[in-house]
Design a protein around this nucleic acid. Structure first.
Lengths: 337, 337
DNA sequence: GTGAAAGCGCTAACAG
DNA sequence: CTGTTAGCGCTTTCAC
């Protein structure tokens, strides 16, 4: 006595309902040109047999897979560092894709080998489109895929050959401006910055925005560069202190680096915010628990994911979007400034 | 002048190489029974035309998809809280799957609707198997899928109907025992615990282990229950202090809760570790930055993902594994104890 | 409104 | 060792 383990096919359902395969297909796909009575009969058969369409067979003829790749092009340790950027994007994407009834296929691509894998995969049309969440503006993958006529959207403003692709990013400039204006407005005179790596879009844009904001006043810029890690923040802060012992404020391009900077300042005997004001960027959860709690620029990470997915679906649908979506950032004032 | 946008098919490659479809298929799939000369010729044709096999067509006949689902059954905010558990698992899984040349399909399932989606998806054999990373031992999904004869493995020891499924978990008991023994060994007399939620496997197992470890000595247990969040840790600590003002140590079932507890202790004027020793569990990155740095039990999160993927691949291959993989935990002593 | 028939691109016997 | 031949399960004209 074996259980009916075989999944029923359209054929089987058709036999049971006493109609043709084509009719069952129509009902399953919601065609309106089916008589009510028959539709009911078919639906019952589907129900009773637990019929589920075979995606492979369907894709073979429709040329669509209804699944979309999210590619994270970053070294794994960065992908899941505790700044929560990638997890947030994944979450937003998967929310939105679920609503659009698409499947999310997640791909990590650290190495060049990984890139090749992805080109093969997407090139073979195993997914309908590719969302690339790269923090490296000069990543060659987006352009490579676009050249193969694969629908692509980017998380993070793309640089170089891919600059014309649709993308979603946050308003780095607006956030940084607000931060610098806040510092100026509270009477700070020597405002330094700890910038992010200059091969990453967030690093580039935030430094440019800092410079632009200061240029509006008559203050000169004082810059040290980190790589978005705590450790680099601590080191950069030491360097800044050595370069300009008089500084009374520092805008740090990420909360993680700001955390490191806070430690350095304490070790150097500077009080925050009395001697030196500190403003970070990201508003990671930890920002509320540093000592003192960190003033920072909040960016809507999960929303990036949502918008990314929404944009992707539109591109796949053939809409000729060449837009950029810029999400607002917001200064959150806490005790460090 | 249009570019050759159409992907070439086996047929096309075969024509170009002057052989049959079957032969090309053999070469592409690495069959050894092809003459060297022909193999070279076919490979060149593949190369020149940029041929990539169509996964849908292949799946249709092989009945395999070479992709595997990772289901995260948790409310989204918990999935990506900063304890980094899920991100770590995703990372491990994707590493291992990449090595095994399988695709990772990520599915979030918060609601019951989500569960249904997943049953449909997996039931339709859109993936070869399902890895379920649920922290709720009593999750009905694993058993439901197993009943449909879908290969399933669990991250986190499953309870109830699914208890016989292969799973990967960390050695909660060993870690907690080490923590309690350490506290006992450093002369603590009244060791309380802040437990996790009792509907989650980590909460259950860690509390049971605490009780067992204390039972070995003659100390009585002092328990408050939290839900793994910082806030609940702070609240539970207050309650513990009220219940037993004499307590001189507390084992907290998660670092996040331990962080909250630390805050409460400071507010209550207790010095850590002088008055009260604190030991956490997880070893999240933040543990090194609390004040004082947190003694905690380290668990190899990424490794869970790796083992999970490895187990899944074996199950899909038809091996009759009914094993459990228990990963070691390790006490990391810092300044809070 | 419904059914028959023709593939989608590939693999896997089975001959030769 | 290579080619021929059947499908895998589904959608989609095209007749009826």
């Amino acid at each position: 006595m074996t259980v009916a383990r075989e999944r029923p096919t359209l054929e089987a359902v058709a036999r049971r309902a006493g109609v043709s395969r084509a009719t069952v297909s129509r009902v399953v796909n919601g065609s309106t040109t089916v008589a009510e009575e028959i539709r009911v009969r078919v639906r019952r058969a589907v129900e009773e047999m637990g019929y589920v369409p075979n995606q492979a067979a369907r894709s073979l003829v429709t040329q669509r897979t209804d699944s979309i790749a999210l590619v994270l092009t970053e070294e794994p340790n960065r992908v899941f560092s505790d700044d929560q950027v990638f997890p947030g994007i994944i979450r937003g994407v998967s929310q939105e894709l679920e609503a659009a009834d698409r499947q999310l296929v997640l791909m990590m691509a650290s190495s060049t080998a990984g890139h090749e894998r992805i080109e093969r995969f997407a090139g073979g049309r195993h997914v309908d489109g590719v969302m690339i969440a790269s923090m490296h503006g000069a990543d060659p993958l987006p352009a490579a895929l676009a050249r193969m006529h694969i629908p692509v959207v980017c998380g993070g403003r793309p640089l170089g050959r891919a600059h014309a692709l649709p993308y979603v990013d946050v308003d780095h400039t607006g956030g940084v401006s607000a931060a610098v204006r806040h510092l100026l407005g509270t009477g700070r005179r020597r405002i330094a910055t700890i910038a992010g790596p200059q091969d990453m879009i967030a690093g580039i844009d935030r430094l440019a925005a800092y410079r632009a904001a200061l240029a509006d006043s008559d203050r000169r810029s004082i810059v040290a560069v980190g790589d978005f890690t705590r450790e680099s923040g601590a080191v950069a802060m030491r360097q800044l202190l050595a370069d300009d012992p008089q500084l009374d404020a520092v805008f740090v391009a990420s909360d993680l680096m700001a955390h490191g900077a806070l430690r350095t300042l304490r070790e150097a005997g500077r009080r925050v915010p009395d001697d030196v004001a500190v403003v970070g960027f990201d508003d990671i959860e930890m920002a509320r628990f540093t000592d003192p709690p960190l003033t920072t620029v909040r960016q809507p990470i999960v929303e990036i994911g949502r918008q990314l997915a929404r944009l992707m679906v539109r591109v796949i649908a053939g809409e000729q979007v060449e837009s950029a979506v810029l999400l607002p950032t917001e200064l959150v004032v806490r005790d460090s400034s």
